[in-house]
Design a protein around this nucleic acid. Structure first.
Lengths: 183, 183
DNA sequence: ATCTTCTTGTGAAGCCTTTCACAAGCCGGA
DNA sequence: TCCGGCTTGTGAAAGGCTTCACAAGAAGAT
């Protein structure tokens, strides 16, 4: 497959694709293009996707449980190995095959099971404190669904998914386009 | 409040804050800084946040219903005025005060209620077809939770929120940092 | 009124990313 | 073997974003 075709499929330009790939090395064959199979394998390795990751879910409310039922995650290399919640009635139960623990057990369970990445789906007030607990337990990647900015140690990566924020970005795009799209 | 303080709170630099604001005009007072109140009002207007938006939800499964219970949305100016699903047992029911309609009614309901933005929370196979329906009904902003890339008309904005993709980005950050973080 | 202190708004410089353009190289056909 | 058609990999140019640095202006003290 040529860089041109890759570009069209991923919504970018041929030159961009070639430059991006060239950062990691030369995988293409001049005159022939790229072997999709080989490219897939090589990139998986480079991006750390060949590895499976152990994930913990903190907050087994609506959003948390919805994520567990998402399915897709396991196929893409992420095993949710534990969930945590403050609600006593949930502790000990099974959500889509994942055991729910008390927050008090977080440190122990996360350390024992070698959890590297956590998903925070707590109410916003509880999110920052959850970060503290996770950092102490050795988690270095956090996906945050609580609509708040989080402060983390330097050696921890966070990504926040805020639905309302994304809608706001959409609304900005829409209104600037409508009001005679200056720029 | 000075640009310095604004920068610290939002995790950027003072120069960046001033440059960004200068795109829209001059709101600060030399020697004094910015009036937070006035800044808030002005930016709300500019970003189109003073307006309320009517939102439709397509796909009333786990993720969809979780989003409805999210609360935060209404506070931030987004009213979910209709939901759609293919499951006959859900049609006609109420989810957190939102009526669930058949997909067959999408065009009519969306047009009648003046929906401008839609959230797609369908299975990935159904997402692209949903885009078609929404475009025909006049929706111009789409927030997509299905883990697929979507093709849309030029006058429509899409944002995709893919949990596994975000986790993959995290895992890349983690593994590059571990493997002697070159660069 | 003048001086000192503070902070903005903005040209200019620096840096990084994207695009251009083309030599180098691969393949199939004659 | 030689040629013509394609496509990569990459230096160089262009474009965009971030940081620097400083004149212009505001407020309070003397």
């Amino acid at each position: 497959m040529s860089s041109q075709e890759l570009a069209e499929r991923s919504g970018t330009t041929a030159a961009q694709v070639r430059k991006d790939l060239s950062v990691f090395g030369s995988f293409g064959q001049r005159g022939r293009g790229y072997s999709v199979r080989q490219l897939e394998r090589t990139l998986e390795q480079i991006l750390g996707l060949e590895k499976r990751w152990r994930v913990a879910l903190v907050g087994a409310g609506k959003i948390g449980t919805a994520l567990l039922g998402y399915g897709d995650l396991a196929e893409r290399g992420f095993d949710v190995v534990a969930a945590f919640d403050t609600d006593a009635s949930k502790i000990g139960s099974d959500l889509s095959g994942v055991r729910v623990f008390s927050m008090a057990d977080l440190n122990e369970v996360v350390s024992d099971r070698g959890v590297e990445v956590a998903i925070i789906a707590t109410p916003p007030e509880a999110a920052q404190n959850t970060v503290r607990l996770l950092e102490q337990a050795g988690v270095r990647g956090i996906l945050n669904f609580a609509p708040v900015g989080l402060t983390v140690n330097e050696d921890v990566s966070v990504r926040t998914m805020d639905v309302a924020l994304e809608l706001e970005a959409l609304s900005f795009a829409l209104s600037s386009r409508t009001n005679g799209g200056r720029s």
